[in-house]
Amino acid sequence: MTSRAQDRPEVLRYTAFSADPAGGNPAGVVLDAAGLDDAAQLAIAAELGYSETAFLTAPPAGLGGEPGRAFTVRYFSPRAEVPFCGHATVAAAIAFAERHGPGDLLFATPAGTVPVTVAEVDGALRATLTSVEPAVLDVKDDDLDEALGALGWQRSELDPAFPPRIAYAGARHLVLAAATRSRLADLAYDFDRLTAFMHSLDLTTLQLVWRESETVFHVRDPFPVGGVVEDPVTGAAAAAFGAYARELGLVAEDAVLTLHQGTDLGRPGELAVALRAGDARVRVSGTGTRIPEDG
């Protein structure tokens, strides 16, 4: 997998949560990152400019999984390493499956062990990741006021049925629900102010949501801490949102939620979020495809 011309591992480009290279969320994928130190991985991520790039290396001892299908995975945004990234996980799994066949994979990430299954569905590869153990935390009033101030939102524009919370399923996300689709669509925020706020609470994105129906949601994710104004389609935040919605009794314990994201950016994508009664972990599924080199 090494490019002799550049004397570095091959860097693949895939989009996740869409079968269209122009949709979904682009991610970099390095299937063999052996020999790349932190600086080299960050440089590759910054060069690509995608919200995240996944780097795969040999698994830690005792991880388990099928031989040759278990890996250590690290994720870098253009600015820093992040503990977990859902769309880059899906992209990496589909890139691997295209070369070695569908089946089960096991990823040792900084956030914990993440099983991934890739299956062929209606002629296309579809990946399902299982999150780490999730958590849902309260938000202080002062922190909520600062988040809304950075967004330019008012409390009156929030959906009172969806209390603000910090949700975690591998990374921390502040969940805020807009009362209207037009409020969600009109996103223009103070980049530096939101960045500082998010660093203060160790947030990866803000998960902004609007409920269309019982199980259908539209979402957006500002990501200034990663050097990106907005993440097009966000698997880690989708997992966190699933845990949040179940914890607060906003959806059934057994449910499959459909999240639409990226439409407002012109990169539509779709995530399926599966919740199972008696199982705290959340499953996030989506398709993906390679982005042509001239794309």
Rank of each mutant, 00 (worst) to 15 (best):
P60V: 07
P60M: 02
P60L: 06
A61T: 14
A61M: 08
A61W: 02
A61D: 15
L63V: 05
G64Y: 11
G64A: 03
G64Q: 08
G65Q: 03
E66V: 15
E66C: 01
P67R: 10
A70Q: 02
A70R: 04
A70T: 06
F71P: 03
T72R: 15
V73R: 01
V73W: 01
V73T: 07
R74A: 00
R74D: 04
Y75P: 05
Y75S: 06
F76I: 07
F76C: 14
S77F: 03
S77I: 07
S77Y: 07
R79V: 14
R79Q: 14
A80R: 14
P83N: 14
F84C: 00
C85M: 07
C85H: 06
C85G: 11
G86M: 09
H87T: 02
H87Q: 09
H87A: 13
A88Y: 08
A88V: 14
A88Q: 08
V90R: 02
A91E: 00
A91G: 03
A92F: 04
A92M: 08
A93E: 10
A93V: 14
I94V: 15
A95S: 11
A95Y: 01
F96K: 06
F96N: 04
F96H: 14
F96L: 15
F96I: 11
E98C: 13
E98W: 07
R99P: 10
G101I: 13
P102E: 06
P102H: 10
G103E: 07
G103M: 11
G103I: 14
D104I: 13
L105E: 06
L105Q: 02
L106N: 06
F107I: 11
F107C: 05
A111F: 07
A111T: 10
